[in-house]
Simulated assay, not measured.
Amino acid sequence: MKIGYPCVNEAMDCSAANTFRLASYSEERLVAAVAANLTCLRRMLEWNVAQGLLFFRMGSGIVPFGSHEINTFPWQKHFAAEFRAIGDYIRANDLRVSFHPDQFVVLNSPSPDIVRRSIEELIYQGSMLDLMGLDGTAKLQIHVGGLYGDRELALSRFAAVHATLPEAVKARVVVENDDRLFSLRDCLHLHELTGVPILFDNFHHECLNHDEPMPEALRLAAATWHPARDGVPMMDYSSQAVGERKGKHTGDLVDDLFRGFLTELRGLDMDLMLEIKNKEASALRAVAILRELGLSAPAPNVPSPPLTLPPDPKAPAKARRGKKEAAAKMEES
């Protein structure tokens, strides 16, 4: 069982999502941003390994405008060695990584243009995993999409578009149950239509379900993953923020709730992505609880890289921005 957090290390002084405005696009800006993003990504992965946090959701913006028509620079070739080195590090340290494309990726949209751009974004993000040399266990996590007034049509439209995806992308796509529109039951139906694995979200299931007990729901979702092709099932973990609207994620790990959830697994092996606002702080507590319960290996005896480094005068300005500003620009769900 691996514990992870998404996209941003709140305590680290760098961002892996340096970007710039579309109106300011230039190949020079692109190269500088990608170089800074890959450097920061490597630092985050090294820090995570030292803490025993072996699951990480990478941010989608490693390559600014990666799927946009303006970006004709051959970044795949230019940064091939850097991507390969990161992939080598991931495999050598038994890390699990994923992407969660932004909400504009909607495969079941009635708009052909939205569908086209969604597929292009999945191809872009999948190509980064390909450049890293990672197998199909590195996933692209998406939602079913919109309801558009007809549940069955929305699901069948997703299935039809899914069938057209390049095989390399199709092998990586997983679908997540959400908290408002598409429940675990809907995702199970989609799995029957497409074979797509279900990335189970416990908090979303608590918000929207058909009375499936949590242990049963976990096993139903896990059964959609092929042990060899897909690897250990991934899931998202969070809980309700006290006093907030229904569906708002907690800002900090609630230790007792997390311990209780672990009993619901009943021995099921899952890689857990914590969708909790304080990110690595909660992830560190979660992995400590797993170690206490004998569910995770002891901390590795490797040096922990520093969270901060002296400013690099050659880095793009965005790379030196404050961590709060950087975090605000990153996707969290």
Rank of each mutant, 00 (worst) to 15 (best):
P6A: 12
C7N: 09
N9M: 12
M12P: 04
S15I: 07
A17Q: 15
T19C: 12
T19Q: 07
L22M: 13
L22S: 13
L22Y: 08
S24M: 10
S26F: 03
L30T: 00
A35V: 04
N37E: 04
L45I: 07
W47V: 10
N48K: 13
I62R: 04
V63I: 15
I70G: 03
F73V: 08
W75S: 06
K77W: 05
H78Y: 15
A81V: 07
F83Y: 14
Y89L: 10
L95S: 03
F99A: 02
D102K: 09
N108H: 00
P110L: 05
S111C: 05
D113E: 14
R116I: 01
R117G: 03
E120H: 05
E120P: 04
Q125G: 09
G126W: 04
M128S: 12
L134T: 08
G136A: 11
G136N: 15
I142H: 10
H143G: 14
G145Q: 05
D150P: 01
R151F: 03
A154Y: 08
A154C: 04
H162E: 10
H162Y: 15
L165F: 07
F182H: 09
D186K: 00
C187A: 15
C187Y: 06
C187V: 08
L190R: 12
P197W: 12
F200N: 03
N202E: 06
C207E: 06
L208R: 05
P215H: 06
E216A: 14
A223K: 10
M235Q: 01
S238Y: 04
Q240R: 02
A241V: 01
V242I: 14
K248E: 13
H249A: 13
D255A: 14
D255C: 08
L262Q: 02
L265E: 11
G267M: 09
L268R: 04
M270Y: 12
K277T: 10
A283Q: 04
L295S: 02
V302E: 05
P305I: 11
L307N: 02
D312H: 11
K314G: 05
A317N: 09
A317K: 10
K324F: 13
A326C: 13
A328W: 14
K329P: 04
E332P: 03
